[in-house]
Amino acid sequence: MENFLFDAFLKNKIKEIISRKNSCIASAFLGFGSEKNIPDSSRVICDIGMGGTNANSLIEIRKKLGNDLRWMSAFHPKVYLSDVGCIICSANLSNNGVGFLGQNGLIEVGVFHEYGSSVYT
């Protein structure tokens, strides 16, 4: 089943997905607060060349994940995957995108696919 999500619905579902063991995160930017919300068992890829990733958050995530944190230039997708499901959306893993520090600053939209849907096959 697929659901179109926006604003707080999207933010809450992203937080649920990334909180799970073995979550996979592809986000152009990792903002302040993301390091506290990514479990040790996650795999993460982000961009570090465009200036949107918080350097302190990146350092803390690297300490936690080691080689399970990867980066590449011009990387811009936002995909969050776990045993809950998958979200493909516009929201970076940042305060403006997800709102780790309170109200997110931007209106974001995305599509949630339940685990086991055709997206996984």
Rank of each mutant, 00 (worst) to 15 (best):
T121Y: 15
Y80V: 03
L106K: 10
K21L: 09
I87T: 01
I17K: 12
L58K: 02
D47T: 08
E2C: 06
V119L: 15
N54C: 08
L58S: 03
I87V: 00
G33N: 03
S27Y: 06
L65R: 01
G97T: 08
L81R: 08
C86F: 02
N92L: 00
N54G: 06
Q103I: 10
S90E: 04
I88W: 06
N3V: 14
I87H: 02
K11W: 06
S82Y: 07
K15T: 07
F112N: 01
N56T: 12
F100A: 07
S82C: 02
G33M: 02
F32L: 15
G116M: 06
L58T: 03
V79S: 01
T121V: 15
M1E: 13
M1I: 13
C46K: 00
C24Q: 15
N22F: 01
F9A: 15
G110R: 01
C46F: 09
Y80T: 06
R20S: 14
Y115G: 11
N22G: 04
C46S: 03
S34Y: 10
G102K: 08
N96M: 15
S23L: 01
K15I: 10
S41V: 03
I18M: 09
V119I: 14
G99V: 08
E16F: 12
N96Q: 12
N95A: 05
L65D: 05
I107N: 15
L58W: 03
S19W: 09
R62P: 06
K13Q: 13
E2M: 11
G66W: 09
G116L: 12
S73V: 10
Y80P: 08
I59L: 13
I25T: 11
S57N: 02
L5D: 04
M72L: 12
L10Q: 06
V79L: 08
V109E: 15
S23R: 09
L69G: 12
A91T: 00
L106F: 13
I18V: 15
A91C: 00
S73W: 08
G105L: 11
F75R: 00
Y115P: 02
I38G: 10
W71L: 06
T121W: 14
A28L: 09
F112T: 03
D83Q: 09
E60C: 09
A74M: 14
N54V: 04
L5G: 08
A91E: 02
S82D: 05
K64G: 00
W71Q: 00
H113W: 10
N56D: 13
L69M: 04
N12K: 10
L30Y: 08
L106V: 12
L106G: 07
V111D: 05
F112W: 03
